[in-house]
């Protein structure tokens, strides 16, 4: 596809945010993915053009990072962490259930084009295992039923909220944020009981610090 002038301008804007323009390559790849749902040859060419790089240099980067997809994705990206902690605590069960429900394997997209499924690695939320991501937003302490419901809601276009984050809007919206274009959703709730476990326990056992210090 050909990108609009807006995308070209945004790509150039990204290049201008860094002391050396090439630093904008990762954000720029997120940007073209936010437009196309993947990093296509056209997307690579755009980045190469803006940054005056060979397309092979851009392809080398695009294929290194897992988040960049070289094939079409569904409206939503669903990641199931199957690393040790999450996998054993329930991620495997969740994966088996939804992969079979959707008849969709790793890095594949459901027939209706709504969901791209991926076994993902550690999300830095082991305290919240098993962790699922919906368009990379946290869907913590997941259960088989909970994820089934969320996926069915997503496929029906119903509202699904991240457990620590905003309403799920689609992979392309998340990619745009990662490219460095804000969506003003920072107020979406993000603190839960597990994050407060230590604080609450400290209060319970009277081990807090004086307010003059913290």
């Amino acid at each position: 596809m050909t990108f609009t002038e807006t995308t070209w301008n945004e790509a150039k804007e990204l290049a201008g945010r860094y002391p050396h323009s090439r630093s904008a390559l990762l954000p720029m790849l997120h940007l073209v993915q936010s437009v196309e749902g993947l990093v296509s040859s056209d997307g690579i060419a755009l980045c190469a053009d803006v940054l005056d790089l060979a397309t092979a240099e851009v392809a080398a980067v695009a294929t290194f990072y897992t988040m960049y997809k070289r094939h079409n994705t569904g409206k939503h990206h669903v990641g199931v962490c199957t690393n040790t902690m999450c996998g054993l605590l329930g991620g495997d069960a969740i994966w088996n259930a939804i992969s079979s429900d959707l008849n969709t394997g790793h890095d594949e997209t459901s027939e209706d084009g709504k969901i791209t499924l991926e076994r993902i690695e550690c999300q830095a939320a082991c305290t919240h295992a098993p962790v699922v991501t919906l368009d990379w937003e946290f869907f913590d302490d997941a259960t088989v039923d909970g994820v089934r419901k969320a996926l069915s809601d997503l496929r029906e276009g119903k509202e699904v909220k991240s457990t620590r984050g905003p309403v799920i809007k689609g992979l392309q919206a998340s990619e745009r944020l990662l490219a460095g274009f804000d969506d003003d959703e920072f107020d979406a709730p993000a603190i839960d009981e597990k994050m407060l476990a230590g604080l609450h326990r400290a209060r319970e056992v009277g081990q807090t610090l004086p307010s003059s210090e913290v």
Binding site: L26, H30, Y65, M67, G79, I120, Q123, A124, T133, D135, W136, E137, F138, S162, R164, G165, P166, S174, L177, L178, D182, D183, E185, F186, A188, A190
Partner: peptide, 14 residues
């Protein structure tokens, strides 16, 4: 910040 955590990026950016 790792890319897979958009909400963290929102909070830090803000």
């Amino acid at each position: 910040i790792r890319g897979e955590v958009p909400h963290v990026i929102r909070r830090v950016t803000n």
